[in-house]
Simulated scan of single mutants.
Amino acid sequence: MGQPILIVDDEPAIADTLIYALRTEGFEPAWCDLGSRAITAVEASEPALVILDVGLPDLSGFEVCRRIRRFSEVPILFLTARDGEVDRVVGLELGADDYVTKPFSPREVTARVRTILRRTRPAPPPAGFRIDAAARKAHYAGRLLDLTRFEFDLLRTLVARPGRVFTRTELMETVWAGAEDTQERTVDTHVKTLRAKLRAAAPEADPIQTHRGVGYSVDGP
């Protein structure tokens, strides 16, 4: 089977065109017409990439992208009639990987999809880690970790991008989005407890690195 691609567009004619083009290229496309349904679909079974229309009837594509970014790094390709606006938004690191302006060539979209997938191919997980996002289980050094909700989301975020330094602000926005009464020291507290649990699994290891004045990272593979 090909890689699953989620198309989010409220115009059936556009969706049908993209489904045909993607299937022809060996992908496995699925379609939904509302932003809220797209968020649920990505949570339930993360696709390889999301093709996301900016002008949806319930939520804007920008808002859908923001909400998806709270729990997933799935690549996102915007479809839009507003070239200049999306250019600025993407430039401000909203979280999208690229955009295509309507009207577009289906062949161009599939080419962009392939380029994004090559560029964003996930790195192998750091040595010793095994993360099951769907089951919300994390293993380290062969042992199942007993993690709280926020500890799991923190570890999953760091492990998904080994070697990348996440600032405390980025971690707050990703892991604690929507949580009440949180401060940046919350990140430090959870890193401390997470480190203790990792050491309990592998006493000689210390995979979480502190970058003073910046944030945290996990050692690469």
Score class of each variant (00 low, 15 high):
T148Y: 12
V175L: 05
G178Q: 08
R164D: 03
L145Y: 04
E173C: 11
E173Y: 12
T182L: 11
E151S: 02
F150D: 15
A177P: 03
R164V: 11
F152Q: 05
D146W: 12
T157M: 11
T189R: 14
T148F: 11
L158M: 04
T189P: 04
T167K: 06
E170P: 10
R161Y: 11
R185V: 09
T167Q: 03
T157P: 05
V165P: 00
W176H: 00
R161D: 07
E170H: 06
F166A: 04
V175E: 00
V159T: 00
Q183R: 13
T189M: 08
E173Q: 15
E170I: 08
W176L: 04
D146F: 09
G163N: 02
L171N: 06
L147P: 07
T186G: 01
T167H: 09
T186Y: 06
L154A: 03
T182Y: 08
Q183D: 13
L147T: 05
A177K: 07
R185K: 11
F152G: 03
D188G: 04
M172Q: 10
E173G: 10
L171S: 13
P162I: 05
R156K: 15
D153W: 13
T189H: 09
L154D: 03
M172C: 07
R164N: 06
E184F: 15
L154E: 03
R168T: 11
T148Q: 14
T186W: 06
R164K: 13
T167G: 10
F150N: 14
E180M: 12
V165K: 03
E170V: 08
T169N: 10
F166Y: 12
L155I: 03
D181S: 14
T167A: 04
F152W: 12
E180L: 13
T186H: 07
L147D: 00
L145N: 03
L154H: 02
R185F: 14
H190T: 05
L155P: 02
V175F: 00
R156T: 14
T182S: 05
R168G: 05
Q183M: 12
V165A: 00
L154S: 04
G163T: 00
D188Y: 05
V187D: 00
T189Y: 14
L154I: 01
A160Q: 11
T186M: 06
M172Y: 10
R161K: 15
V175Y: 02
L171T: 07
R168W: 09
T182D: 08
R185A: 10
V165Y: 00
L171Q: 06
F150G: 07
L171H: 08
T157V: 11
D153A: 08
D181L: 15
R164E: 11
V159Q: 02
A160H: 04
